[in-house]
């Protein structure tokens, strides 16, 4: 871990300004991913801005009937929030499907969105990785790629986004609220927040330098059965091979997004028209144009089956 200087910020504006003032700085909240990467010198900030004292840890109703989740709300608290459990079950489910009890006590809402890929070539600094060292190549292409993306991939990168929470937020049409170093704020639809790798896989979100996430808002509840179906190699404490976030209404219509298949939570709104026709039709549309590797081609079939499992659970769970 490279040496850094450390400061505790007191307000969001102060934090954003500090970041702009100090090149090479990073915000730290839960720290569960940033410190992990700093130990390996994959992340090498020269200055850390501790944002835990910003007070962004409340969950409040919005005038539109939704919820505004502070950036620093811990995963455990968000999953356990009574309103989230009642109206946004898919979010609660996704959160508790991720990581471990300990990590969920540390990890924050904003930090979860900003998690970096768990691609083992990204994590091994001896290996080429266009995300870690732009231009060095991609170790996963032609290498061990069982866990990797099958759609939205590029010649430069086939990494996946590891978050479960983000998949649920995608299906909930969440909005990410930020503050920039100049004090201005903006709202970014979750659909636009994460990027596909293209030829710049090192750029993972649309956030600008020094821009700080302050909250995530959820629109008013849409009802329906909320399912998060996560498939992994062991029963818990593992990243998804494939995951499905689904909200299914009584009439079979609804929404679906996928985790574990792309560089961002994967949702194709057009595919949702197929929901009443079942998993195969939905999966077919969602994964049209997929480019799996030999090692992860099974994910195409698995997605279809996991959607099937989610839809079956939704049927049982209809409120």
């Amino acid at each position: 871990m490279k040496a850094f200087t450390f400061e505790r910020a007191r307000t969001p504006a102060e934090a954003a300004a500090a970041a702009a003032r100090t090149p090479g700085s990073r915000f730290i909240a839960g720290g569960t991913n940033l410190l992990d990467l700093m130990k390996l010198e994959i992340e090498t900030p020269t200055h850390l801005i501790d944002v835990n004292g910003l007070g962004l840890d409340q969950i409040e109703p919005t005038p539109e009937g939704g919820l505004r989740i502070g950036a620093l709300v811990r995963n455990t608290d968000l999953a356990a929030d009574e309103r989230v459990r009642r109206d946004y079950g898919v979010l609660s489910r996704a959160l508790v499907a991720g990581a471990s009890g300990q990590l969920r006590n540390m990890a924050t809402t904003a930090g979860n969105l900003l998690q970096r890929t768990r691609c083992p070539y990204f994590y091994d600094t001896n290996q080429p990785c266009n995300k870690r060292a732009p231009g060095s190549g991609c170790g996963a292409i032609g290498g061990f790629s069982r866990q990797h993306a099958v759609i939205g991939v590029s010649e430069a990168c086939i990494a996946t986004h590891p978050s479960d929470m983000a998949v649920a937020l995608r299906v909930l049409d969440a909005i990410v609220e930020t503050i920039r170093p100049d004090g201005s704020t903006r709202k970014i639809a979750i659909a636009d927040f994460h990027r596909l790798p293209g030829d710049q896989p090192q750029i993972e979100t649309v956030l600008e330098a020094g821009e700080l996430i302050t909250a995530v808002t959820l629109p008013k509840p849409v009802g329906g059965a909320h399912i998060y179906y996560k498939v992994r190699d062991r029963a818990s404490y593992a990243f998804a091979l494939v995951s499905v976030a689904a909200i299914v209404q009584r009439d079979g219509t609804g929404r679906v997004a996928l985790g574990g298949v792309a560089h961002k939570p994967w949702r194709v709104e057009a595919a949702e028209a197929e929901m009443p026709r079942g998993a195969q039709a939905v999966a077919g549309r969602l994964l049209a144009g997929a480019k799996p590797t030999e090692e992860n081609a099974f994910k195409l079939k698995l997605v279809e089956r996991a959607i099937g499992a989610a839809l079956a659970e939704a049927k049982e769970a209809q409120p």
């Binding site: 994590y123 091994d124 061990f144 404490y237």
Partner: peptide, 18 residues
């Protein structure tokens, strides 16, 4: 390149309680 790629406890999965 001749190495074990999943060389940590996240990549090399062993059974958990569940």
């Amino acid at each position: 390149h001749g190495f074990f790629v999943n060389h940590d406890l996240a990549g090399y999965e062993v059974p958990v309680h569940a």
